[in-house]
Amino acid sequence: MGFFSKLKEILGKTREGISKKLTALFSSDKLGDEFYEELEDILISSDVSVATTTEIVEEIRETAKKEKLKDKDYVISLLKEELFDTLNYADVPEVKTPCVIMVVGVNGVGKTTSIGKLANKFSKEGKSVTIAAGDTFRAAASEQLSVWADRAKVRIIKHAEGADASAVVFDAIDSCKAKGTDVLIIDTAGRLHVKSNLMEELKKIDRVIKREYPTAQYLKLIVLDATTGQNAENQVKAFSEAVGLDGIILTKLDGTAKGGFIISLSYEQEIPVLFVGTGEKIDDIENFNAKDFIESMF
């Protein structure tokens, strides 16, 4: 099942309320204050930031006013276009082998699960994959990752709990070089982005990767939980400042959560969404497609 239909199916279920609201909204031919206020409310209830919402709606409003628009379908397409432009602002990097992917994020967003799914995805594409258990902090994190590695049938490199995360990474790189592994995915401990000591640890891992494997493509991906609100922006900012970010993995998009903050994010910080997690099974990961994402919203 393609991303579009799958997402549409999921979102179709959960966004029924919003879609109905929108349809009702656009069906009424009045394009007055109330119309635009409702439009703002709809975006805000999807966790699009207040600032971005105001900006987008204002822009649509200006255009509609200037062109004396009254056609609801046309206004819908304008809004979609605007959202698409916003989401498509950043370039999506292509994965070239050998590749090192470091996965970062705050606690509980689904890093380990996403890594399992990603490993499986690359493995299915015929790439050789190794996972490094860089979360040496959380209780039983490497066991959890091992289960995913088994499911994806890929190799895992791990040390004991409490070990130095950069040492794990060092060993993993060493081994990947020796075996000519295509993709190395590194799990890191979840950390609230305000903890400076933990962010320093992350920078250390980052230095090790750059120093030990300069020839590999190096991607740093942040995992964001779709149920999160405006704090997602702070998370991205903090991790971006610490190690730089190449992309976003948006998880838990299988519920009622809208994850609208990515609209503000990819616009303001030019970080593209690469993958979305859409369920609990190992295949529940898809390439992100802005057009489908927006289509599914309506």
């Binding site: 805000i44 966790d47 149920t227 609100g229 405006q230 959560a257």
Partner: peptide, 8 residues
Amino acid sequence: DAMTGQVA
């Protein structure tokens, strides 16, 4: 989670 958004 205190960071939860609108879906809370």
